[in-house]
Amino acid sequence: MNENKEYKVSKPISDKVFSVVVFVFLLVFVIITLYPVINTVALSFNDGIDAVRGKIYLWPRKFSLKNYKTVFAMQNIWVGAKVTVGRTVLATLTSLFANALLAFVVSRKRFLFKSQLSLFWVITMYVNGGMIPVFLLYRNLGLTGTFHVYWIPGMISAFNMLVMRTYMEGIPESLEESAQLDGAGYFTIFKDIISPLCKPVYATVALFIAVWQWNSWFDAMLYNRMKTQYTTLQYELMKLLSSVMQQSGSAENAKNGAATITPVTIRSAATVATMLPIVMLYPFLQRYFVTGLTIGGVKE
């Protein structure tokens, strides 16, 4: 880090040009990343009719809370929010436990079926039945049209399991052996010895599962389209957005100006409401997903 200072005298001109290029690249990158998000927030706080004129950038022109009032008055949004929070919490807990337990089993060096069980799960990453057979299976099992379709089928994922396995394999075997000499069974070893040491990787995987659950919409559309009581937040947002998206392919949104509050501001408010929890949360969990991705990605 300090070597730059040492060689400052002989620093080539090309390096100065390079610094400028780095700076410009990152500036453009940050603007492109942030602008659309900030613009959405600005739109969500702008008066609907005023927004039709366009040219709202980083700040609302005519401030209004009406959009949020409209969004929060929608019954479906609240149902969706309840279901989404419910599935996120339940699936994160159950899936984390199941994946951790499986990872624990396949990472025991002395376990007799260690490699076979690993292979059994690795195969599932590459071969799957596809949309239709899976759909029919869920229907035959009575999972479609229920809340359970959100957390039972995806409970174990080979990828998450492998991330945890890699981490657990790094824990010295001697810990397990000494516990066994004290008469501890495997469940005790899992619960009291391995799990406390695995907190970082548990946090990583929990984050992966939670984000996946929070952002899911396709399962709600495919399996619970008719069951409005099991709708999710993202699916409700999709319904709001898609009505407008379909129009851009045809008559363009000329008619929208007539409405008291144009869809774009309401859509923005709904978008902000659904993304807010995760956007507030992820910066604090950064070190977990960075380490988790690094061990899981490179080693496997």
Partner: peptide, 25 residues
């Protein structure tokens, strides 16, 4: 930190935002 942000948004949100950015206004 900023660079991770879009990864945490759903495709619904991303396509919605993109759609607005590319719209007539």
């Amino acid at each position: 930190t900023i660079s991770y942000l879009p990864h945490f948004l759903s495709w619904i949100v991303v396509t919605g935002i993109l759609h607005d950015s590319l719209s007539a206004t």
